[in-house]
Amino acid sequence: MTDLFEHDPVMVDEITAIFDAVPAGTVIDATLGGGGHSHALLTRRHDISILGIDQDADAIAAALERLAEFADRVRTSRRRFDEIPEAMAEHGITEVSGALFDLGVSSPQLDRAERGFSYRNDGPVDMRMDDEQQWSAHDVVNGYERDELVRIIRQHGDERFAKRIADAIVGARPVESTTQLAEIVTAAIPAAARRTGGHPAKRTFQAIRIEVNSELDVLPTALDQAIEATVPGGRIAVLSYHSGEDRIAKQRFSLAAGACDCPHDLPCVCGAVQTVRVVRGVAKRATPDEQTRNRRSTSALLRVVEKTEPIPKGIGPSGAA
């Protein structure tokens, strides 16, 4: 099991440096996966523990095996990452020193053909991060109306040929395997466009996976929960791999940093309160060396905020300071 989930965690040096500054306590690894980031954090900091959250039972089992040497400092919870308060309550945790979100699909999930995430390996059209969930990619690919397919492929995949791809999928139904789906998508894209940008089916598979797992729907709530649970001086870091994910992280962090729409030349009357300071105003990318070594890091974007004591940005509607 551990071998299957062995992979290089993305931007691990940057992540460990970020959490060097947080107070002693519990750090939430909201996307535990194989435990790579958690292993690095536990090795580096002897005064922190990890609360690992993941929907995938195999990932949790592999992470516990990998983190066995730190068993007394590791707790896990099998749930979605927008259930942070429930995960904390499960283990009697009332506050945390930070949280890490490594979004997207893990390399081990892609490598297991039976999970249906990969356009390179033949498997069922599945893509569920939680295999107990009833809804799968099969329902999306074979059940969505053409216009709905266009919407999710364009919105979640940034795919400019969404209409052509949706028409091809509808025309080829039923679609039963990932290789069949990949071939349909590839054939729908003009030959000239297939020569650049990686595998032609990559964006469509990403879009369907995001839809199946409601990834963009739950992320704002999860980030707000992490900010709320973190003590002053703690940090929240997000590794995203898709423009929609990064946009949400930027928006939630900006809001928590006290952003408001009041005119700059007038006092703030919206009641905005700053609860974080932005550590990285511009998303950081992996180094060229890491991008060469670790293919998954090529699209990674890192954003970080640090929790502060609440700081009112201006006066409230009543005129109180």
Rank of each mutant, 00 (worst) to 15 (best):
L67Y: 09
Q251I: 12
A320F: 11
A62R: 09
T308K: 02
S254G: 15
P85R: 07
A257W: 06
P124R: 07
D246Q: 10
D261R: 13
G198M: 04
E228K: 14
K202M: 05
M1G: 13
H199N: 12
E90V: 00
V238L: 07
L301V: 00
E6D: 14
D224E: 15
R296L: 05
V10N: 07
T178N: 05
V304K: 03
A283R: 11
G244K: 04
A40E: 07
G271Q: 11
F70W: 14
T230E: 08
F19R: 05
D13V: 00
I153F: 13
I165V: 15
R195W: 00
L239T: 02
H37S: 03
H91I: 09
R295M: 06
I50V: 12
A300L: 03
A99P: 03
V170R: 10
V12N: 09
H37R: 06
K313M: 15
L216K: 08
E306S: 04
R195A: 14
A99I: 05
H46E: 15
A62V: 05
D261E: 14
L41I: 13
V269Q: 12
M1I: 05
R252N: 01
F205R: 09
A222L: 06
T287M: 06
G271S: 11
D265E: 13
D8L: 13
S243E: 06
